[in-house]
Structure formats: structure tokens, C-alpha cells
């Protein structure tokens, strides 16, 4: 009675469509298990085998993975927020208020974005603390420590640029403090702040620039570095072992 579906399944698996998608058999042998990982574009960044000690949660507290998870949450919720938010000085604040009060699920998406943003700063920081205290920055992982440091800076800059977008008093004055800090840089400070913020004080230019940086330039750079970061973990022999 099951012969017909079994025959159909066999045909599907031997057909050109199946073979164009999958290059290995069911992962029940060591070879196919390995192939399942490194023929998959999403899994190939991950080591084929993980050491037993690395699975103990207190070793890492999953802080790197949580940072990446929050990055994905921020990408998804941020993309949805972009459908309603318009980065101009007369519309931005009202759009955020509409998201909070009018748009269906707008409030939870906006708050998820905000809290995940704060959370990512925390988890990335704790991840760096863990890497430092386990000595995981030592050779051969010193290059990945540098990549991680750049990712930490990008996380802070993403947080800072996003801070301005609600265009309320808190955002305006907090970023004004940043403007004054940029101006304090020796020799190039005034020029740098003028070019980056697009004016002598925060205005329409600064809001639009921060928006473009926040939704395009910085996430792209971050995603690029995350890919290198993960690939490099694998190339450096997986997660670091006990000292």
C-alpha cells in the first residue's frame, strides 16, 4: 500500500530538481553529516564539529550568539519600522508617535527594536569580557579580536545613530552632546562635525544622514564583518579550549 508514495519519493530524490538543491544523502553517516554542514551556505560558517567543553553554557553564556540573534531581531523589526517612519524634521516625531499609538503591532515592534538595541550593546560588551577573561584573544585568534573590536564600535555607532531618529528632546540633546564631542577633536574637529552632521547644528541634514547610516551603511558593514568574524572562528579551530 505504501509502495506508490515510496516510489514517488524515490523519483523525486533522484530527479534533477532535488539533485540541484542537495548534494549529499541523509545525514546519518559521518561523511553526510559533514557534507550537510559545509554544503549549506548558512551552516558552512559554523565548524563541522564542536568540542564538548564548548557546549557548557557557563563558558560563553552564549553572548556571541545572543548578540547575533539580537542583530537579526533588529534587522527584522527595523525593516518593518521603515514602512512607517519618515526621516524629516516635521514628520519623524509624529511617525514614531503613530507607531506607538495607531499602527497595529507598531508599539511592540518599536519597543522590541529599542530594547534589542540596548540589549545588543550589553551582550556585545559581555561577549568581549568573556573573550578577554578566557584568553580567547591570543594567537591564533588575535585577528578575530580586532574584527570583534570593530564590531563593538559599529554596535555603538548604530546605537548612537538610531538614538537621534525619534527626533524628541532626549534624542536631540543627546546627539548634540555628541556633536560637541566631535568638535572637540584636535585640528579637524569643527570640519569633521560639519561634514558628518551636515550643518553647524543638528537639523534636517543630520536627521537624514543618521537615518541613511543607521538603515543602510552601518548594517551592511556590520553584516560583512559578522560573516568574517564567524568564518574566522572556524578557521582558527572553533571556539577556544580551556587554558
Amino acid at each position: 500500500m505504501l509502495e506508490l508514495p515510496a516510489e514517488m519519493w524515490r523519483r523525486v530524490k533522484s530527479g534533477p530538481l532535488w539533485k540541484s538543491l542537495f548534494r549529499h544523502g541523509y545525514p546519518d553517516s559521518r561523511k553526510n553529516q559533514s557534507l550537510a554542514v559545509f554544503t549549506n551556505v548558512f551552516l558552512h560558517l559554523h565548524p563541522v564539529k564542536v568540542r564538548r567543553h564548548a557546549l557548557a553554557i557557563p563558558y560563553t553564556w552564549c553572548m556571541g550568539g545572543l548578540s547575533f540573534f539580537l542583530f537579526l531581531v533588529l534587522t527584522l523589526t527595523g525593516t518593518l519600522l521603515m514602512f512607517y517612519y519618515r526621516p524629516t524634521t516635521d514628520l519623524a516625531y509624529a511617525d514614531i508617535k503613530d507607531l506607538e499609538t495607531v499602527v497595529v503591532f507598531g508599539q511592540i515592534l518599536r519597543n522590541m527594536h529599542r530594547w534589542a538595541g540596548h540589549g545588543m550593546v550589553i551582550t556585545v560588551f559581555l561577549h568581549m569580557v568573556r573573550v578577554f577573561y578566557t584568553g580567547s584573544y591570543k594567537p591564533p585568534r588575535e585577528f578575530n579580536w580586532v574584527v570583534g573590536t570593530l564590531l563593538f564600535v559599529l554596535t555603538l555607532v548604530l546605537s548612537y545613530t538610531g538614538y537621534l531618529l525619534p527626533w524628541d528632546q532626549l534624542a536631540f540633546w543627546a546627539v548634540t552632546v555628541g556633536y560637541n564631542i566631535a568638535q572637540a577633536a584636535p585640528f579637524v574637529g569643527n570640519e569633521f562635525a560639519f561634514v558628518l552632521f551636515g550643518g553647524f547644528q543638528l537639523g534636517a541634514n543630520a536627521l537624514l544622514r543618521f537615518y541613511v547610516l543607521h538603515v543602510v551603511a552601518l548594517p551592511l558593514a556590520t553584516g560583512f564583518l559578522i560573516a568574517i568574524h564567524f568564518w574566522r572562528i572556524r578557521k582558527d579551530g572553533g571556539i577556544s579550549g580551556p587554558l
Partner: peptide
């Protein structure tokens, strides 16, 4: 990019 990002038209302060 550098001169492109440097605004010529200033509105308000400046």
C-alpha cells in the same frame, strides 16, 4: 564623497 557630503546650502544657523 567628502565634498559631496559637505553641504553648500546652509539653512538656519550658519
Amino acid at each position: 564623497i567628502y565634498p559631496f557630503m559637505k553641504p553648500n546650502k546652509i539653512v538656519g544657523l550658519g
